[in-house]
Amino acid sequence: MADYSSLTVVQLKDLLTKRNLSVGGLKNELVQRLIKDDEESKGESEVSP
């Protein structure tokens, strides 16, 4: 898992935009949104054959 907390808000928003996720909120919220997306993506890849 990436260390999103070391990134700037601009970098976080860029990552969120690329994933089609909301870019609104405080830095901590942006980090949590990326972590949640990582976990959901990981779960999907494990279920797929």
Rank of each mutant, 00 (worst) to 15 (best):
1 M>W: 02
2 A>K: 15
2 A>T: 15
2 A>N: 15
3 D>S: 09
3 D>C: 06
5 S>A: 10
5 S>T: 07
5 S>R: 09
6 S>F: 06
6 S>Q: 14
6 S>R: 07
6 S>L: 10
7 L>D: 01
7 L>K: 07
7 L>T: 03
7 L>P: 01
9 V>K: 10
9 V>D: 10
9 V>I: 10
9 V>C: 08
9 V>G: 05
9 V>N: 01
9 V>F: 07
10 V>R: 14
10 V>P: 15
10 V>N: 06
10 V>T: 13
10 V>A: 15
11 Q>V: 05
11 Q>M: 09
11 Q>H: 01
11 Q>F: 01
12 L>R: 04
12 L>P: 02
13 K>F: 03
13 K>C: 07
13 K>I: 05
13 K>P: 00
14 D>W: 06
14 D>T: 11
15 L>K: 09
15 L>F: 03
15 L>R: 05
15 L>V: 06
15 L>I: 15
16 L>Y: 02
16 L>T: 01
16 L>R: 00
16 L>A: 05
17 T>L: 13
17 T>R: 12
17 T>S: 14
17 T>H: 09
19 R>F: 00
19 R>M: 04
20 N>S: 08
20 N>V: 03
20 N>D: 11
21 L>N: 04
22 S>K: 06
22 S>V: 07
22 S>F: 09
22 S>I: 11
22 S>D: 14
22 S>G: 10
22 S>H: 14
23 V>C: 12
23 V>H: 08
24 G>H: 13
24 G>V: 07
25 G>Q: 02
25 G>W: 00
25 G>A: 02
26 L>H: 15
26 L>A: 11
26 L>T: 15
26 L>C: 15
26 L>M: 12
26 L>D: 14
27 K>R: 11
27 K>A: 06
27 K>E: 05
27 K>S: 05
28 N>W: 12
28 N>I: 05
28 N>P: 14
28 N>C: 05
28 N>Y: 15
28 N>F: 06
29 E>K: 02
29 E>H: 06
30 L>W: 10
30 L>N: 02
30 L>C: 03
30 L>K: 04
30 L>A: 02
31 V>E: 08
31 V>Q: 08
31 V>W: 05
31 V>P: 01
31 V>G: 03
31 V>Y: 00
32 Q>W: 09
32 Q>A: 14
32 Q>N: 03
32 Q>F: 00
33 R>V: 01
33 R>W: 00
33 R>K: 02
34 L>A: 03
35 I>F: 05
35 I>M: 10
35 I>E: 08
35 I>K: 13
35 I>R: 10
36 K>H: 11
36 K>N: 12
37 D>M: 03
37 D>E: 08
37 D>R: 03
38 D>E: 04
38 D>G: 03
38 D>T: 02
38 D>M: 03
38 D>W: 02
39 E>Y: 06
39 E>D: 09
40 E>I: 15
41 S>Y: 15
41 S>V: 11
41 S>Q: 09
41 S>H: 15
42 K>I: 09
42 K>S: 13
42 K>D: 05
42 K>E: 07
42 K>Q: 13
43 G>C: 10
43 G>T: 12
44 E>N: 14
45 S>V: 10
45 S>M: 12
45 S>F: 05
45 S>Q: 11
46 E>D: 05
46 E>I: 12
47 V>G: 13
48 S>H: 04
48 S>V: 12
48 S>Y: 11
48 S>R: 14
49 P>S: 02
